[in-house]
Design a protein around this nucleic acid. Structure first.
Lengths: 209, 209
DNA sequence: AAAAAATTTAACCGGATGGTTAAATCTAAT
DNA sequence: ATTAGATTTAACCATCCGGTTAAATTTTTT
């Protein structure tokens, strides 16, 4: 199941990713990572001196997929509805490819939120720019008015949560029917897009607050 | 900050709740729980023989708040829109009182999904009944049509996710302004209700699929 | 071929941690 | 007052685990 270069470092990072994502930082064992990488513990420390460093390297690899470049999409011109659709498409696409990211990121950021600062600067996250953009579209009358944060979180919630709560969905909603679960995920993009648009486009009988 | 009977067992459960919720099963330390309960480790094992048992007891206590009686609300008669509003109100109310439940539950169910089975039977969770109920309302033309699972998950997502992702919201969106974050949470119920209703009520210019 | 780097083996250290134990002390019920 | 249960103290054990080390072996580079 290897993907890129088969170098030992990559094998380690790949193995670490698997173990850390399923077990978390606390639950992960260096020995298990070594086993999964097909090497021994000594070599593991030979490459990454400590569990801490290995985790940080792995976390960095994973977090890349967590915050896609929505800023890029937002910066283009065109109706905001189109941009929202693009963002939803991009996000769901990403999450279907990396379904375990949300759970992992939320778990670890809850454990130790200190890493958030690095992430924000590293990815140049600028939520304010996005919120301003949304606000502008609202002022222009493109969509109904609400605090931009609420709209953004509403969209992100519907995209991310179903993946973060995958075990619950899997067992409680789709009683151990993996096919049905995958089909559900595949439908999400279209569903969310329609849902959001129906909620925010302005119509005659809209009670605008 | 004690609430109910000040019995030792309650003190332990209260302390265990705090520690387990913040540190998780793996990260929690028996010594820390004993300290937090104001007792010693020996007495801790005197009441709950092992960490495993203590965790299970605590988890049971916590999980009670995770799946509120939406079934009750659903079973009443009246328009489904009203019921949806009641459910959102109930859920947000609950989450504001217990903001750390979502993160904890998702973390632990991800770590060991085996506990889900017990929960489902214990609480008599019957999602199918809910889905059927939604489907019926759709067939009656009360709201637009979509797979009931999507509607339910959309609503739950917008309710739960902002709490599960609290650290991200706190730092990235409301840069260390706790007041703003609390205000945001307080607004959620109204926002979600309006959002959902605007998305699902039938209007003339609705493109019904 | 020689040198350097990568990898293995296997043992070990030390600290943290879950759990136990035995004796002593305190508290509440009989 | 006696007794049983609750609680403390303090030491202890076994295990797990992150990390180290030294030597041997293999692979790669020069």
């Amino acid at each position: 199941m290897e993907t890129k270069k088969d170098s030992t470092e990559d094998k380690i990072l790949e193995a670490a990713k698997n173990v850390f994502v399923t077990k978390g930082m606390d639950g992960a064992r260096m020995q298990e990572i070594a086993d999964e990488a097909g090497i021994n513990k000594a070599l593991l420390h030979y490459y990454f001196r400590s569990k801490e460093r290995l985790f940080e390297a792995t976390f960095g690899e994973i977090i890349k997929y967590a915050f896609p470049k929505i800023t890029q999409i937002v910066q283009t011109d065109g109706p905001i509805v189109t941009k929202i659709e693009q963002i939803i498409d991009a996000y769901i696409d990403l999450l279907i490819k990396h379904p375990f990211i949300p759970g992992f990121v939320m778990k670890e950021l809850n454990r130790d939120p200190s890493g958030l600062f690095k992430i924000v600067v590293k990815f140049g996250l600028n939520p304010k720019a996005i919120f301003d953009h949304i606000q502008l579209a609202m002022d222009r009358g493109e969509i109904i008015k609400m605090k931009p944060q609420h709209l953004a979180i509403n969209i992100l919630s519907m995209c991310i949560f179903p993946f973060a709560a995958r075990p619950i969905l899997s067992f409680v909603v789709f009683k151990d029917d993996p096919k049905a679960l995958e089909a559900f995920y595949a439908e999400r993009a279209e569903i969310i897009k329609k849902f959001v648009i129906d909620a925010i486009v302005i119509r005659e009988n809209h009670i605008d607050t």
